[in-house]
């Protein structure tokens, strides 16, 4: 395994960078989009609730690979040419945001319902109450499951390997195929994933303790 790091550090490093970049972009946008759809799902307006529901159920229940492939092979035919990296990152963002929406919705609903009414009767609008009263409490509750989703996101970024996104898994497959040292290569890849996911999970735990 040390041998693999020594001889193949260049592609591994590139893969590490791509995986990290994709994860950060997808994490940022899926958190925003996910929270947005979570709010849609509990809005008083029925049309918005239906939109929120459809988004979550559709994208949560089909495989990530299918979403990503759609962006990689169908979008270039009719809309615009996009790279494997972009297709993978968009696919990952859409997929994860559906899971985050579901997580955040559950968090919002576990906050006592009376608080929303109370805030609104004190003159706050739906959005103000959501932003200042409900969401801060909801996020506190959902940090651990959200942490699970973030870790899933980093690992799911390996979908890039299927659309030539030059990520860690892609490079790992390349190296394993050229050198036939499959086991050691995958060990090396596993350690590089841990370098991203471990601090992330520790940070989430730290956040959980801080807000508790």
């Amino acid at each position: 395994m040390i041998h693999i790091f020594a001889t193949e550090w260049q592609p591994l490093l590139q893969g590490f960078g791509q995986t990290l970049l994709c994860s950060i972009i997808a994490l940022f946008f899926s958190l925003i989009i996910g929270t947005m759809f979570a709010i849609f799902e509990i809005m008083p307006n029925k049309a918005m609730r239906v939109i929120g529901n459809i988004y979550v159920e559709v994208f949560r229940n089909i495989p990530l690979l299918v979403i990503t492939m759609f962006f990689f092979v169908v979008i270039p035919l009719y809309v615009v040419k996009i790279s494997g990296f972009a297709a993978g990152t968009i696919g990952l963002t859409i997929y994860t945001s559906a899971f985050i929406a579901e997580t955040v919705r559950a968090g919002i609903q576990s906050v006592d319902g009376g608080q929303m009414e109370g805030a609104q009767s004190n003159g706050l609008s739906f959005w103000q109450a959501m932003r200042h009263i409900i969401l801060p409490q909801a996020f506190k509750i959902v940090i651990p499951p959200l942490g699970n989703q973030f870790i899933n996101l980093v690992k799911n970024s390996s979908v890039l390997a299927f659309v030539a996104g030059f990520d860690l898994m892609y490079q790992g497959n390349m190296i394993a195929n050229d050198t036939l040292q499959t086991m050691s290569t995958f060990f090396a890849v596993g350690i590089l994933y841990l370098i991203i996911t471990m601090p992330l999970s520790y940070y989430m735990r730290h956040l959980e303790k801080k807000l508790a």
Binding site: M69, V73, P76, L77, F162
Partner: peptide
């Protein structure tokens, strides 16, 4: 098959 599909979609 994925490679051919990528070629067809202009990748």
């Amino acid at each position: 098959a994925q490679a051919l599909t990528a070629l067809k979609s202009g990748q």
